[in-house]
Write a protein that binds this DNA or RNA. Structure first.
Lengths: 209, 209, 209, 209
DNA sequence: GATGAATGAGCGTTCATTCAT
DNA sequence: CATGAATGAACGCTCATTCAT
């Protein structure tokens, strides 16, 4: 076992410090006007040091978003393969929504990286990371949907239609969970169950019984 | 009756123009980066003229917020006194929520003035205006709640508890109505009714029948 | 006759001040590291004011270059049409070289705008100005060359060959005139005469006598 | 004979590496924006190590300039004393120009150290080095000029006049040799000969025969 | 009173320089 | 001693605010 050099450990810890500081500030009320100096100050380092770790402020956003989405992907990958596609899909959808609920601090980061212009400014390597992420999600989701269709559990529909609909449903649910900061007429957990139910129903819809 | 001088009329019209222009821009997508020049241009006046009416950009925000909240207060005051405190409260809560729904263009203004730091920068006179507003709301709401309690319609609870709960409920509902831009599982009107119901129930809760 | 408003006069004077200040600094030894603050200080104005007149530091360079090249074009246009194409071309070539000699302060500006990357950063309208300038030069030069060929004074050669060669010769001569800041083995005037002679000879070269 | 310790050898080799790396970068196109990191990388060492050898980036420039000028002085000192002052002067002038022609890579270094402000920033010891260098040149040149005057080969003129003129001539010739990168009406070697001839003639000028 | 030219603090970013390891 | 992470002054540029006209 090779011991990680102390220097490297510290360097990585700083990166974590910066990301943590940035996330705290981005999740606050003034997130639109957070400056690099504020991030550096909160991380307890100098302004220039931030740029040893990230080429730009946007890259901090990008990195936080990647961390968030990779966490989401891990959520999905944790679902065990089984002979019950419906249960799998339920678990995945529920888990993904719960993940968002538990990480509301990424709400503004997500909003920011989806803004027009963000991708245009982003460096090639970060764009590739996001594309790889998208591809992994697509593979994972499509496999499960097709498996369910082949098993006759989900109705046969064009994959693109199903994916588009589920994505819209999912994003709408996330808005709901995040848009409401203090209160909701039904409990989030119950809300999530209803969305999951809706999603499963739409996957089985039109099925000949 | 003293005729308002033409000059004064023009002055006030300009102020309205500025506020209208600012509100349009603040309700748009890039509201965070709206500049004073943009506001002046849209109002059809020079940049310097804006400062004849408002000491700072923040005061425009403050003034819009005051307009909005005074409109809300007028909503409440329009409720006729009656012998039915529950119906009054229902009307008030419903009306206040409808008011927010109908004035979503103030969404960003409200967010902005609630930011940390806004009040620190605000001039004394504006702070006093906001405090006066708060006080009027408190008087109005407390009167109605106490009247309802005295009449035995609402359960006897500490006023502070009731006010805190209702405020949270109200703010949550506003976030819900404003936060979710594309999708909601129930219609806003129905949503408002449910919230009103919930509020009334909580006012009557614990009551011995 | 409409009197120019005083304000506009002052505004234009400031622009001239900025350009003059920039040209002085760009013609000096430290021209590569001239800052906007230095330009503003020398022009006796604030940093922000520079940006009322020019969108970027590069645009100051671009504007100076345009001024320089338009002056050069005026030099050419001043040459009277005559029945002697050779004398015209001699006058033009000589005049253009003299113009460069008399405006050596633009030496670094010219170098800067010809750098790779400068055009990529330049705004569309400035690029169009330069293209228009190029086109006017081309029209003027081609007319005179073709007229000379038609008159049998210059030898018939492909226009592109002649233009390429003359441009190279001209640029080389400018380098010579500018590269040497204090001294030259022959006097600049004599040098210019020799280059002109060379140019004319190359235009007549291959001619059947 | 004391053996140079290995450690010291290595230290000196590193210094040579840094200077070589810096010279390569300073002679390139983007020499103005060369960074210390680039120099260190090309020298195959860490950034901090550069500062073990040179107190600042300017000192690297200064040291390169000193190396260059000491090389030039050695050129002069290599000229054998003889009884022919004119031949000596010819050799020296020709050699010095050839030295510049063969070391065009120092062109930007020379330009940089002659900039206003460079000397102000330079440390005392380096300034002294340059002053010593100047003094040695002056001694060498004045000796030869005076010897030639005493021998009746050069005309009697105030030393200051002769030195000023020769310096201007020399610097002009260097600009010519370095400034013109693409084109010259005569070959460099021939150019040098003409300059030498001109220099000798001016030394003999006004002489009563 | 209305104006917009002028301002300079503050933004994101770079890089020469320092210093703990 | 060599290193490179950390620093902060200074860059080009923006824009809220001021003030002479």
């Amino acid at each position: 076992m090779v011991a990680t050099p102390r220097k490297l450990q510290e360097f990585e810890r700083r990166e974590a410090d910066i990301l943590a500081a940035a996330l705290e500030l981005f999740s606050g009320d003034n997130w639109e006007s957070v400056t690099v100096v504020q991030i550096a100050d909160r991380a307890g380092i100098g302004k220039g040091t931030v740029y040893k770790h990230f080429a730009s402020k946007d890259e901090i956003y990008a990195r936080l978003a990647l961390d968030f989405f990779y966490g989401l992907l891990r959520c999905c990958h944790r679902i065990q393969d089984s002979n019950d596609p419906e249960a799998e899909m339920r678990s995945a959808f529920r888990g993904a929504l719960q993940y968002h609920r538990e990480h509301q601090e990424y709400s503004n980061v997500r909003q920011y990286v989806f803004r027009a212009g963000f991708w245009e400014r982003l460096s090639k390597s970060y764009i590739e990371s996001f594309e790889k992420l998208d591809a992994e999600f697509a593979i994972w989701a499509n496999q499960r949907i097709e498996r369910g269709m082949d098993a006759g559990v989900f109705s046969k529909q064009p994959l693109v239609t199903v994916r588009t609909g589920l994505d819209a449903l999912f994003n709408g649910a996330v808005s709901q969970l995040w848009g409401n900061r203090c209160w909701m007429e039904i409990e989030p957990d119950e809300y999530i169950e209803q969305v999951v139910e809706f999603a499963i129903n739409s996957l089985k819809a039109g099925q000949v019984e």
